[in-house]
Nucleic acid binder design. Structure first.
Length: 206
DNA sequence: GTCGAGATCCTC
DNA sequence: AGGATCTCGACG
């Protein structure tokens, strides 16, 4: 499987959030290959986005990678969970796309092992940003990894027919930003993290 | 050094 | 609805 080239990431962050849907996220671990189609994303556009860690161009050790070239992994921990973002935007612009859910493709047995015994349904393996990193064995050690190179990379995947959008999840205390429709998912996909919210759902392509 | 908050997940 | 339980960032 060929990784998408660095130039793929040189597009507007909202556009990238949509075009990442259907792409294949792959981790080649020592145990074997684990992969899944990206089915849900969120955009974070630092300078103007209260919900972003880089809001108002806040620059810290953690957000530093967001200011670099697009296509690198911004990984951070919240509570006990690891979250994976794709750095986006031009060099110097601290933007990123959060990968919120994938649909398992290969290495499902590894996903089950990694996630633990309490999982009894395949659609519970990777339907959340903390879940999918655990399933794919992604950790903070991959902070800054270029996502166009092995062992952790993104490749072409499947065709997405319809994309939906709506407000992002878990940022209710972030003022106006909580209304921005910067969450994107494949319409009707059963591996998306939360059932909608039909009030806020918009179909972008039909 | 201390302290509070959080782009979550799981169980009750 | 609440708790787990870790990291970062702000403050001093």
């Amino acid at each position: 499987m060929n990784a998408l080239k660095p130039s793929f990431y040189e597009q507007d962050t909202l556009q990238l959030s949509k075009t990442l849907l259907g792409k294949l996220l792959i981790h080649e671990t020592s145990a074997g290959l684990i992969s899944g189609w990206i089915v849900e994303t969120e955009a974070y556009i630092g300078p103007i986005d209260q919900a972003a860690h880089s809001f108002n161009n806040r620059r810290t050790k953690r957000t530093e990678i967001m200011y670099g070239a697009p296509g690198f992994a911004y990984i951070y921990t919240m509570h006990n969970h690891t979250l994976l973002n794709v750095v986006s935007g031009k060099l110097g612009n601290p933007e990123a796309v959060l990968i919120r859910a994938i649909e398992p493709v290969e290495g499902i047995e590894f996903m089950i092992q990694s996630r633990g015994e309490h999982i009894h349904q395949t659609n519970q393996l990777t339907n959340g940003p903390g879940k999918l990193t655990k399933a794919l064995q992604i950790s903070n050690a991959q902070y800054g990894h270029p996502l166009f190179t092995k062992p952790l990379y993104i490749a072409e995947g499947k065709e997405i027919k319809t994309v939906s959008s709506g407000p992002r999840i878990g940022i209710d205390n972030k003022g106006e930003a909580k209304f921005y429709p910067w969450r994107f998912w494949e319409t009707g996909n059963g591996y998306v993290s939360k059932k909608l919210g039909s009030n806020f759902e918009n179909n972008l392509f039909t």
